[in-house]
Design a protein around this nucleic acid. Structure first.
Lengths: 206, 206
DNA sequence: AAAAAATTTAACCAAATGGTTAAACCTTTC
DNA sequence: GAAAGGTTTAACCATTTGGTTAAATTTTTT
């Protein structure tokens, strides 16, 4: 049916689904082949081994999202605006790929070294740029002084948690699928508010 | 050597380590047996199957932490104080069990129904108590109106993310183990500030 | 000392799984 | 139309893994 799509592409799409939902360990080559509408022999004909296939899928996953997302943090733009755009993009991205964050975190935890060589340096660069902006603003007194790790962790934690913990949160708080969608949509507005409040807070933090 | 410790206990400890680090799928019965200092036959003699062993470990993990932690939210206590205590306990808990949050999230994602019957209802109860307090405070005008999901997600997200994303954050921001420890320690103070600022914020959230 | 329970040894089984192979069969390319 | 490359079929292999079994040995209980 979908004959115009290259077989390689079909395989990669299928592999992506299976890997993301089952993780590297749980994924089965047979299932990937089935879902791609081909057989195991052909699967190995294209990608010699499970490891090589996984490597490819994992890197594609990172490279197709990381740069756009963290690119926002590197742009010339007021902090407040960066914040809004980043959160908007990030939440939307995860709404469309709910399994992705857990997948990425898991696989990086399984094999931390591999990652850093490939994309870690790029992010580090963005981070140092952000660092400069934060220092400058803090010196002007616009925001409180803050370390980049603290800021990034806060933003990402606020965005990611609702997505990865959905299977817990939804039943516990008795939310329907629709409710949960509203909840995620609400995050797009609220997370920037939370962060901005914190950054521009005047009270002593006793 | 550790002969006074019951074999069952030794097994459960070993299983806990292996399950938490490798997940249910990745864990190997042989490795559990080895780490417990016994053999596979005896392992199956105590716990008939991998599933039963896992079930036991998983439930112990939840039950030994969940109640204490979420109990704090159910206590009669000013919100601000609850916040402080919860974060303090939560971060400390995760500093001592860094693999736990990812493990719990993963296994609940793998099998959401199983959980809810056992501990979901307790937490729901706590949640409704918290809900009442939030409504009361909001009516008094002490805090802005907020849904429990929003609050809990924010707090937990802010605490959990630095722990589960450590393998990414540490290299990217070039932090030593010591630095990272400081960072986590800092969270204990900062997370309550972030949340409290947000709750008591007066500005319009445009 | 006898009985019961815990533990080891070691061989074994069945199922799942990643991977291979060789032959045949299409489909595209030249 | 021949050559080359993509695709299927189907059998096959080696390894891993959860789990079993039976007998022997050690430890604990009575």
């Amino acid at each position: 049916m979908t004959k115009d799509v290259s077989t390689e592409r079909k395989i990669l799409e299928a592999a992506r689904e299976v890997f993301i939902q089952q993780g590297m360990v749980g994924a089965r080559m047979q299932e990937i082949a089935d879902r791609a509408g081909i057989n195991k022999a052909l699967l190995h004909y294209y990608f010699r081994s499970k490891d090589m296939l996984f490597e490819r899928v994992f890197m594609e996953t990172l490279q197709s999202n990381g740069p756009v997302l963290f690119g926002i943090l590197g742009k010339e733009m007021p902090l407040k605006e960066k914040l809004k755009q980043f959160v908007e993009h990030y939440v939307e991205l995860m709404k469309n790929n709910p399994f992705m964050p857990l997948f990425v975190i898991n696989e990086i935890s399984r094999n931390p070294e591999k990652l850093f060589g490939k994309i870690g340096s790029q992010i580090s660069q963005v981070a140092s740029g952000l660092n400069a902006q934060l220092k400058a603003e803090a010196d002007k007194g616009t925001i409180r002084p803050i370390e980049p790790v603290d800021l990034i962790s806060s933003i990402m934690g606020l965005c990611v948690f609702p997505v990865i913990a959905k299977p817990i949160l939804r039943p516990v708080f008795g939310l329907s699928e629709g409710d949960y969608d509203e909840f995620l949509e609400r995050r797009k507005k609220e997370v920037p508010v939370i962060i901005w409040n914190y950054l521009t807070d005047k009270s002593t933090n006793e």
